[in-house]
Write a protein that binds this DNA or RNA. Structure first.
Lengths: 126, 126
DNA sequence: CCGTATCCCCCATGATACTG
DNA sequence: CAGTATCATGGGGGATACGG
C-alpha cells in the first residue's frame, strides 16, 4: 500500500509511534472496524454537530438533527460513547440534564474524514 | 469544522482547487456519499487487492478473496466500475478474459483511507 | 427532559443453480 | 472463464407507545 510517509515530527519531543504494517486482508479488516464505528444512519450527523468542541445536550442534538427519533438518537449516542468517540455527562439533575462532546480521539477523526471529503471533491476532475 | 489547511502547493504550477465549504449537514451528506461508494461486504477487500497498481483478472480476485461468491464479486465490481473507482477491460477473447484495475481517482483513495487507519492506530493511546 | 420497549418492514447478503 | 437468475434470511432502522 502506498503511504503518506515520511512522518514528520512537527513538534520536537512528540514521538509518533511506528506505523503498523498491513496486508490487503488486515487493512480491509481494520478499515471495516473504522466503518462499523461510523456506520449508522445518523452517526455522521451527530459527529459533525460535535466537531468544533461544542457541548450539546440531548435535546440540542434532537433539534439540530432533522428527522431523528429519540430512540435512534439515544442508540447512536450510546454506540459512539461505548466506542470512545463521544463523552457523555449526566449532571444528575431533575429535570434531567445530559450533555455530549467529542473525546480527543474522536476529534482526531475530523481531519481524517476531511481527507475523504477532499477525495470526493476531486471527483469532477477525473 | 477544523481543517487541514493551509494547502501547500508542493509542485509549482500545480493548482489545487479551492476547497468546498461545508455545514454540518452537507459534510455529513457528502461523507455518506463516500461511504455508500465503499460500503458493501467485499469492496474494501477488492480495493486493497488493486491498490498498488496490479491488473487482476476476475478469477484472480476470486482466488485472492476468500469466501466471496461469483455473484457478489461481480456485483461489487459492477458498482465500483459504475462509480468510477475501478476500470474494467474485456479483451473479447474465448475463453473470456476480463481484468480490473484502479482508476486514477480510485487510487487517490489509498492515502485518504490510510488516514483512517492511522486514526484507528491511535486508539490505544486514548 | 431523556430516554426504553415493541412491533414491523425492507434490503443487503448468502446459497444454489444455470449459461455463453 | 466470467458471469446471471432465483429464492431465502436476518438485522438495522422506522413508527409508535410508555416510563422515571
Amino acid at each position: 500500500m502506498t503511504r503518506t510517509h515520511p512522518q514528520v515530527s512537527t513538534l520536537p519531543g512528540l514521538q509518533l509511534p511506528p506505523r503498523k504494517t498491513y496486508t490487503a486482508l488486515s487493512a480491509a479488516i481494520d478499515l471495516e472496524a473504522v466503518f462499523s464505528l461510523l456506520e449508522g444512519r445518523w452517526k455522521l450527523l451527530i459527529l459533525f454537530n460535535l466537531f468544533g468542541g461544542q457541548v450539546q445536550r440531548f435535546s440540542d442534538l434532537e433539534k439540530r438533527i432533522d428527522g431523528i427519533s429519540q430512540k435512534m438518537l439515544a442508540q447512536q449516542l450510546r454506540q459512539l460513547e461505548a466506542d470512545g468517540i463521544v463523552e457523555r455527562t449526566d449532571h444528575g439533575e431533575v429535570p434531567p440534564r445530559v450533555d455530549y462532546r467529542m473525546t480527543a480521539w474522536g476529534q482526531a477523526l475530523c481531519p481524517a474524514l476531511d481527507g475523504l471529503l477532499q477525495w470526493m471533491e476531486q471527483c469532477g476532475q477525473r
